[in-house]
Amino acid sequence: MTYYANPAGLPPQTDLLTDRAIVTEAYTVIPRGVLRDIVTSVLPDWTGTRTWILNRPVPGGPTTFAQYVMEVAPGGGSGRPEAQKTVEGFVFVVDGELTVSIEGETGILAPGGFAYAPAGAVWQVRNDGTAAARFHWIRKAYEPLEGYTAKPVFGNEQDIEPSPMPDTDNKWRTTRMLPVDDLAYDMHINVVTFEPGASIPFAETHVMEHGLYVLEGKAVYHLNGDWVEVQAGDYMALRAFCPQACYAGGPGNFRYLLYKDVNRQIML
């Protein structure tokens, strides 16, 4: 199993400026060629680390989450990655090896490895390896629910049996990394897989926001009436009720990391 990890750097001066980056009232597409050194940030309480911020709450866009691509050099990391006690976090490794400790439980995450840190948890991240570690960090303001307590979760998506979507002959399947039947969790993080030629056969239009990072392959995505080509390393941020569907283009599988907010009443 392979996962695209953005190489950064800068394009040569001879390249054309035309690209697929677009921001609309319903969605944003950030192509992989946009994630260059010039747009990185250095975060407080992190050492040996640079960050590409893929999504933050902005008017007209998704408002429930932030998503980063993190690159941690050997020996780098953070003893206090999350400064807000009300914010939960999810880490998904795409390259290298990362050691994550949450409330005294430690996991060494290889590509495909993930960890969930509940809001208010004491946790740390470090790179004990000899090469850079690259991972996604998804942050969400947790919405507490009386009688339910979210707990740390560790795993690797390659060890989880994907669930086939109904009536698709197993050509569209979803790997669910957080418990889907436990109301303690107010977000789902999945890896979605389409075999070549498989599709979402209708325009999904729903209240859940999405962050989609393409891990592998290519497809044509239908977003709010527009057809957009995407490939490994591209990122899409979809606001609530953005109509969405796709066709997987082949020749290999099309796979992406998916965030969505779930399991809570709409507060008025």
Rank of each mutant, 00 (worst) to 15 (best):
Y3K: 04
N6V: 14
N6K: 02
P11I: 11
V23D: 08
T24N: 08
E25Q: 14
G33V: 06
L35N: 03
L35S: 11
R36H: 09
S41D: 06
L43Y: 09
L43V: 02
P44F: 09
T47R: 08
R50S: 08
N55R: 12
V58W: 01
G61W: 07
G61A: 15
F65S: 13
Q67V: 01
V69L: 15
V69G: 03
M70L: 14
G76Y: 08
R80P: 00
E82N: 10
T86W: 05
E88C: 13
G89W: 05
F92C: 06
V93H: 00
V93P: 00
I102N: 04
G104F: 05
E105M: 11
G112Q: 08
G113F: 15
Y116Q: 09
A117I: 09
A117S: 15
V122K: 15
V125T: 10
R126T: 07
N127I: 06
T130K: 14
A131E: 15
A131L: 12
A132H: 11
A133T: 07
R134L: 11
K140N: 10
L145R: 15
G147Q: 02
Y148V: 09
A150T: 08
Q158S: 09
D159E: 15
E161M: 10
P162T: 09
M165F: 12
T168V: 04
D169C: 05
N170Q: 04
K171C: 05
T175E: 08
D182S: 11
A184F: 08
A184C: 04
D186T: 15
H188W: 07
S199M: 11
S199E: 11
H210W: 01
L212I: 12
E216P: 01
G217P: 10
Y221S: 08
H222K: 07
L223E: 03
W227R: 10
V228S: 06
A232P: 02
G233N: 04
D234C: 04
C242D: 00
Q244D: 05
Y247N: 10
Y247W: 09
A248R: 01
A248N: 03
G250E: 02
N253G: 00
L257I: 02
D261A: 07
Q265V: 15
M267I: 13
